[in-house]
């Protein structure tokens, strides 16, 4: 008996979407203005669109390198975190081990750890391993963020698979590990994929570790690289808005393609079913 949507509702909805999207809209409109118009008032639309800001954004800083670094770091993090987390989540949800509550408690506590509380020892560790300004130098600390997140979400997905499947596999003589690799993991593939997207986004967005560990410009990731466009003396809004548009496009594409999955993943941890 859901309420039907009327005209006032759609007006509200449009307003809501407009408010949420306004910053993007304005940033996009600025990025196609010729530089002189950016500082000359608040016209919404330029009559003279230009790509100058984009050219300048790419030339002043290695933006595509930042994007490539982010892709490499986030992909490595996702692969490692998902492999380790799916084993742990399977064990916690479906195998007869003790201390399940304690293990999940540790996982949840680790997810809540403030990064600032571990950054200095991690910095020393990465420094001593000689991994500053490298991909692994960021992948290692990113495990702290992504592993608990992945275990937590995967546990929800694994729980939904019917337990009868395992019992019949056992009767057919499959070993527990075979049951995991041949039956449960393929069935949980959509959930694993969803978890992968969320882990990837979390790694893509990380700022504090990226700022401190990879301080060399050629190893910077997108969030840090973008924040370096502002200097103490000038605020090149044209470059900044163009760069923002360029780095936002991949995220928008991912969100548009996978929105249903992302919502399913995000809400799985929060809502009991």
């Amino acid at each position: 008996m859901r309420k039907r949507a009327g005209a006032p509702f759609y007006i509200f909805l449009s307003l809501f979407i407009f408010v949420i999207m306004f910053p993007f809209l304005w940033v996009f409109l600025t990025s196609i203005k010729p530089p002189i118009e950016i500082f000359a008032g608040f016209n919404w639309f330029t009559t003279n669109p230009s790509l100058n800001s984009y050219v300048s954004a790419i030339n002043t800083r290695p933006l595509f390198l930042y994007i490539w670094n982010s892709i490499a770091v986030s992909t490595l993090t996702t692969v490692i975190a998902i492999s380790v987390a799916s084993l742990a989540a399977y064990s916690v949800t479906r195998l007869p081990i003790k201390f399940k509550g304690t293990i999940l408690g540790i996982v949840l506590a680790a997810a809540m750890f403030p990064q600032i509380a571990i950054i200095s020892p991690i910095f020393n560790l990465i420094q001593n391993l000689g991994l500053r300004n490298s991909y692994m130098g960021l992948v290692i600390p990113y495990i702290t963020i992504s592993l608990p997140l992945a275990i937590w979400i995967l546990a929800t997905f694994f729980k939904k698979i019917p337990f009868e499947l395992e019992e019949s596999a056992k009767l057919d003589g499959a070993s527990p590990f075979q049951t995991f690799t041949k039956i449960i993991f393929p069935l949980a593939a959509p959930g694993v994929f969803t978890t992968g997207i969320l882990v990837f986004i979390a790694a893509w967005n990380e700022y504090l570790f990226a700022l401190t560990i990879n301080s060399d410009d050629s190893w910077r990731t997108v969030p840090v690289g973008l924040s370096m466009y502002q200097s103490q003396y000038t605020l090149p809004w044209g470059d900044i808005t163009a760069a923002t548009v360029l780095v936002t496009i991949p995220i928008v594409v991912v969100v548009l393609i996978f929105q249903r999955r992302i919502v399913a993943g995000l809400t799985s941890g929060a809502v009991k079913e």
């Binding site: 809501f16 979407i17 949420i20 999207m21 910053p23 993007f24 940033v27 986004i201 893509w204 967005n205 700022y207 997108v222 969030p223 840090v224 973008l226 924040s227 466009y229 502002q230 900044i240 808005t241 923002t244 780095v247 936002t248 995220i251 928008v252 991912v254 969100v255 548009l256 929105q259 249903r260 992302i262 919502v263």
Partner: peptide
Amino acid sequence: RAAVLIPWAIPTAVSAMM
């Protein structure tokens, strides 16, 4: 759904710049 997810999905540092 997309409008709601995009602000969440972009890096905080990028939205802070915006």
